[in-house]
Each structure stands twice: as C-alpha cells, then as structure tokens.
Lab assay of single mutants.
Amino acid sequence: MTLTLTVPPGAKVRVRITNENGETTEIEVEPGETVTITLPAGSTVRVEVEVVDPDGRKRTETFTLKP
C-alpha cells in the first residue's frame, strides 16, 4: 500500500506514521515536494498529517489505514 502526498507551495507538512507495535516514523515534506510512502503490507497504520500554511495556521488530519 502506498500513500502519496503533494505539498502545495508555501505549506509545510509533517507526517507521523504509527504501526500496530506503536513504532512511529516521522517525516517532514518541504513546500512543492511530492513524496510517496510505502506502508507495510497487511498492517494497520495510523497516519497523522500536520499542515502549516504560509500564514502560520496549523491543521491536523488523522486517519487509519487497514489492509
């Protein structure tokens, strides 16, 4: 399973991925970048995406991906 994120110009994104064992991976994606994350097959993962807009506003979306 893959997750692809494209960050709009001016925004910053931090992604936290937590697996079933509670292990967390965190990455930051710079403005204008596209990143593809390969998620472990057969695992349920929690993905938290934090977006910081150019004006400093933050918003966070959290979702769970199941196999």
Rank of each mutant, 00 (worst) to 15 (best):
M1Y: 12
M1V: 08
M1A: 05
M1I: 12
T2I: 12
T2G: 06
T2L: 14
T2N: 07
T2D: 05
L3A: 05
T4A: 11
T4L: 13
T4I: 12
L5W: 09
L5R: 04
L5P: 01
L5Q: 02
L5K: 01
L5C: 12
T6D: 14
T6I: 13
T6P: 13
T6E: 12
T6Y: 14
V7K: 01
V7M: 05
V7D: 02
V7E: 14
V7F: 14
P8C: 15
P8F: 13
P8W: 14
P8Q: 09
P8I: 13
P8M: 13
P9M: 05
P9Q: 07
P9S: 10
P9R: 07
G10N: 06
G10E: 11
G10R: 07
G10V: 04
G10I: 03
G10Y: 02
A11C: 04
A11Q: 01
A11H: 03
A11Y: 03
A11R: 01
K12W: 03
K12D: 11
K12T: 13
K12L: 05
K12S: 11
V13F: 01
V13A: 03
V13Y: 00
R14I: 04
R14H: 06
R14T: 11
R14Q: 10
R14N: 11
R14C: 09
V15L: 09
V15G: 06
V15A: 05
V15E: 00
V15D: 00
V15Q: 03
V15T: 08
R16H: 04
R16V: 03
R16M: 04
R16T: 04
R16F: 04
I17G: 12
I17S: 11
I17A: 14
I17K: 07
I17E: 12
T18K: 04
T18M: 09
T18Y: 08
T18S: 07
T18W: 10
N19A: 10
N19K: 06
E20Y: 08
E20W: 07
N21R: 08
N21Y: 11
N21K: 05
N21Q: 09
G22P: 09
G22A: 09
G22H: 08
G22I: 12
G22T: 12
G22S: 10
G22W: 09
E23D: 07
E23V: 08
T24K: 09
T24S: 08
T24Q: 11
T25K: 10
T25C: 13
T25E: 08
T25R: 08
T25W: 10
T25Q: 07
E26R: 07
E26V: 04
E26H: 05
E26C: 06
E26M: 04
E26P: 13
I27K: 07
I27Y: 13
I27H: 11
I27Q: 11
I27C: 09
E28I: 02
E28D: 10
E28T: 05
E28W: 03
E28L: 03
E28K: 08
E28H: 07
V29M: 12
V29A: 03
V29D: 14
V29Y: 10
V29S: 09
V29T: 09
V29R: 10
V29P: 13
V29W: 14
V29K: 06
V29C: 11
E30A: 06
E30P: 06
E30D: 11
P31A: 05
P31R: 10
P31H: 06
P31L: 14
P31F: 09
P31I: 14
P31Y: 05
P31E: 09
G32F: 13
G32E: 08
G32L: 05
G32D: 12
E33S: 13
E33M: 10
E33W: 11
T34N: 09
T34G: 09
T34R: 13
T34S: 06
T34P: 12
V35N: 07
V35F: 09
V35I: 05
V35Q: 03
T36M: 10
T36H: 09
T36E: 13
T36W: 12
T36V: 11
I37T: 11
I37Y: 07
I37P: 03
I37R: 15
I37V: 08
I37D: 08
T38Y: 08
T38G: 10
T38Q: 07
T38E: 09
T38P: 07
T38F: 13
L39H: 05
L39N: 08
L39W: 07
L39M: 10
L39G: 14
P40G: 10
P40T: 12
P40E: 12
P40F: 14
P40R: 08
A41I: 12
A41M: 11
A41D: 06
A41G: 13
G42F: 10
G42A: 13
G42L: 09
S43F: 09
S43K: 12
S43Y: 06
T44G: 02
T44P: 09
T44N: 03
T44V: 06
T44F: 11
T44Y: 08
T44E: 13
V45H: 06
V45N: 06
V45A: 06
V45C: 05
R46S: 03
R46F: 08
R46Q: 06
R46H: 06
V47C: 02
V47G: 07
V47R: 00
V47W: 00
V47A: 01
V47P: 00
V47N: 00
E48S: 04
E48Q: 03
E48V: 04
E48H: 02
E48K: 01
V49H: 00
V49T: 01
V49W: 01
V49R: 01
V49F: 02
V49A: 01
V49Y: 01
E50P: 01
E50M: 02
E50H: 02
V51G: 01
V51M: 05
V52H: 02
D53F: 15
D53M: 14
D53P: 00
D53Q: 04
D53R: 01
P54N: 04
P54Y: 03
P54M: 05
P54V: 08
P54L: 05
P54K: 13
D55M: 03
D55K: 02
D55L: 02
G56V: 00
G56I: 00
G56N: 00
R57F: 04
R57K: 10
R57V: 07
R57Y: 02
R57T: 09
R57P: 00
R57S: 06
R57I: 04
K58S: 04
R59Y: 13
R59K: 02
R59F: 11
R59I: 04
T60H: 02
T60A: 00
T60C: 14
T60P: 00
T60L: 04
T60W: 12
T60V: 09
E61W: 15
E61P: 03
E61Q: 08
E61R: 08
E61K: 07
E61D: 04
T62H: 12
T62F: 05
T62R: 02
T62A: 03
T62M: 03
T62K: 02
T62P: 00
F63Y: 04
F63Q: 15
F63P: 15
F63W: 04
F63M: 10
T64R: 00
T64W: 15
L65H: 01
L65S: 00
L65Y: 14
L65W: 15
L65D: 11
K66V: 15
K66W: 15
K66S: 14
K66Y: 15
K66T: 15
P67K: 01
P67A: 13
P67W: 15
P67M: 15
P67I: 15
